[in-house]
Design a protein around this nucleic acid. Structure first.
Ligand SMILES: [Mn+2]
Ligand SMILES: [Mn+2]
Ligand SMILES: [Zn+2]
Ligand SMILES: [Zn+2]
Lengths: 145, 145
DNA sequence: AAACTAAATAGTAATGATTATGATTTAGTT
DNA sequence: AACTAAATCATAATCATTACTATTTAGTTT
């Protein structure tokens, strides 16, 4: 059974990208964000303390490259880019529920896109985003008390 | 029949906000973006040529204030905040199709939220976003030729 | 109509995330 | 061990946005 990092490294190999110690360290850190988003700027800050002198450029470039390879999920929020390790490496399409208190990300089943195609005659649909916000069950519990 | 700007001014009055010439000019400009998003930074740039010396602060502050009043719709994209004049002042909840070529925004009917509530037992849902991307009918046509 | 005052704006500078660039290093290959 | 394209470093720049304080003004009161 492959670990998430082994899977990611395999993807890098498959794409002829070099396995540098910087990329290893980046994956090691990002894999701790499998069910939470984190700001790239925070990743940047962390990597540079952990890895003295690591270049901003290297961090931002690799995060974006990893995203195009399907290793990470990105989203834009409040003038920042947030990143999360990909939920599932089979890239099966899905949507999220995000807790606005603790940040926990939950995967949702089903996709609403089909319902809308009839409303867009003549259009070409290339993508979509859906995300639900609120308090997870745990945070809802705590809040009640 | 009230114009969109008259409606907006009425909302400002109702909330005891002052009708300044800066706010008037801002509304006059933003009302031209009823079916397209525009970056706030571009609004800022435009307002400052049109209105020499207008403060960045004033522009950003008012855009955000107008959003909380329901006059505008905001979204985050590529480290910028985009803004659009509200589609309909009754604030009826809806979603958008956005053309990635010409930027045209089309309102969609129906909301998929209900389908997901059963998947989130014990959670508190406070909001959601859904947006579909692609080419509008016009841009699909042009592309075909 | 003048005075009043809280709200709004101007003017200037700072902040912070991200990107640019050219020199140097290195992973993987030959 | 040499080679080389790819990756990283080191440094500075860019650009959207925010901060701060003095000044102005819209709407109210006298
Ligand atoms: Mn996911
Ligand atoms: Mn709308
Ligand atoms: Zn939570
Ligand atoms: Zn279009």
């Amino acid at each position: 059974m492959e670990t998430p990092i082994e899977q990611a490294v395999a993807v890098l190999r498959r794409n002829q990208l070099k396995i540098t110690k910087q990329r290893q360290a980046l994956l090691d850190y990002l894999v701790t964000y499998q069910d939470h988003y984190v700001a790239i700027s925070e990743v940047d800050e962390h990597m540079r303390t952990l890895f003295a002198g690591m270049s901003h450029n290297t961090i931002y470039r690799n995060v974006k490259e990893f995203e195009t390879l399907g290793l990470l999920e990105l989203k834009s929020q409040a003038n920042q880019t947030l990143v999360k390790y990909q939920c599932d490496f089979e890239h099966q399409h899905h949507h999220h529920f995000v807790c606005s208190n603790c940040g926990k990300v939950t995967e949702l089943q089903a996709c609403p896109l089909d319902e809308y195609e009839a409303q867009l005659p003549g259009c070409t649909i290339t993508g979509h985003r859906m995300e639900i916000y609120g308090l997870c069950a745990e945070c809802t519990q705590k809040q009640a008390n």
